[in-house]
């Protein structure tokens, strides 16, 4: 963990790619080596991207040509699978699932950003009794397997009659349950110059003012990174909805996909693959738009995808 700290302190989020002076060209060997590196990278790229390419291409093929056909290119591409997939399943349109996913993801982002920022401010900027203990406990939850929690949490939410609502899936986000984000923001705040808030304190500003009008605006990069990850984690989450949601009308996309697996894997493989593609579109979109934030976030904080 300490490395994350050290890399982060050494290079705050955005300036990860310090320009390195180009290595002086020494001999022809260097060029050959560079070529080798490129060739190898391309091979790895092909392997890494193959499953994705396969998925997209297969979604354009008719069901009976997906398995057993070594060629990637469909003989005649058609969007039929997407039409079937969008029509949904069990009388529920795919848009309903997408809307549920989107709602969960957006509320998760709001909750996570607010609660993590507030918590991080406490840890990074306020000297209060017990701070070290709580911080250590917070870091400890990073290492805690979620298994220990799901059963009692389920029991409590069950007793409260909150099964089959979004509450169990969202409440944790408003209570900063994901220590990764707090950690990320604490690290970021520690690198912000203290002179700013010290000046404000001398002017008589309270913590609330400092947090809202000084810290939050400065934390933009950390907030963006947190938002993107919170969105994607919520979007991909499977276990939470699997445990807590019963009514297909409330299903987010991963559970809807499971319905597809259960009900149409034999009869309509193509639509299932098309649905898989659709479920990944927002994540890929985020990836293309914000890849720098994502990759730098990982580089500095060790965030998992």
């Amino acid at each position: 963990m300490s490395t994350a700290t050290s890399t982060a302190t050494a290079a705050p989020l955005t300036d990860q790619r310090r320009p390195t002076p180009p290595a002086p060209r020494r001999q022809d060997g260097a060029r050959a080596r560079s070529l080798m590196v490129h060739a190898l990278s391309l091979v790895i790229l092909a392997v890494v991207l193959y499953p994705l390419l396969w998925m997209v291409m297969s979604s354009l093929k008719p069901t009976n040509q997906i398995i057993g056909d070594p060629s990637l290119l469909p003989t005649e591409a058609s969007l039929d699978n997407y039409r079937t997939a969008l029509a949904g399943i069990g009388g529920i349109s795919a848009w309903t699932f997408a809307r549920n996913s989107l709602f969960l993801a957006v509320v998760s982002v709001i909750g996570t950003v607010l609660s993590s920022a507030v918590t991080a401010y406490a840890f990074a900027r306020i000297e209060f009794a017990g701070r070290k203990l709580w911080f250590a406990l917070m870091i400890g939850t990073l290492l805690l397997p979620f298994h220990v929690l799901i059963i009692p949490q389920y029991i409590v939410f069950n007793k409260l009659g909150l099964i089959n609502t979004f509450v169990p899936l969202l409440i944790g986000k408003f209570l900063a349950a994901e220590a990764f984000f707090i950690f990320l923001m604490v690290q970021f705040m520690r690198n912000l110059p203290r002179e700013l808030d010290e000046a404000a304190r001398i002017d008589g500003c309270g913590h609330v003012r400092i947090f809202i009008s000084i810290m939050l605006p400065l934390m933009r990069p950390a907030i963006i990174t947190t938002s993107i990850f919170a969105f994607i984690w919520s979007w991909n989450d499977f276990l939470g909805p699997l445990l807590y949601l019963n009514d297909p009308e409330k299903y987010p996309l991963p559970l809807a996909l499971r319905l597809f697996v259960d009900q149409t894997s034999v009869s309509d493989y193509g639509a299932m693959i098309a649905m898989s593609v659709l479920a990944l579109v927002p994540v890929m979109l985020f990836f293309f738009l914000f890849q720098r934030y994502l990759v730098d976030g990982v580089a500095t904080q060790g965030l998992k995808g």
């Binding site: 709602f103 089959n164 609502t165 408003f174």
Partner: peptide, 18 residues
């Protein structure tokens, strides 16, 4: 705690759906 989050903003997840 639900009460708290409900006060916190208009995004109370409890009545968002259903």
């Amino acid at each position: 705690s639900f009460g708290l989050t409900a006060c916190g903003g208009g995004d109370d997840p409890a009545n968002a759906s259903g």
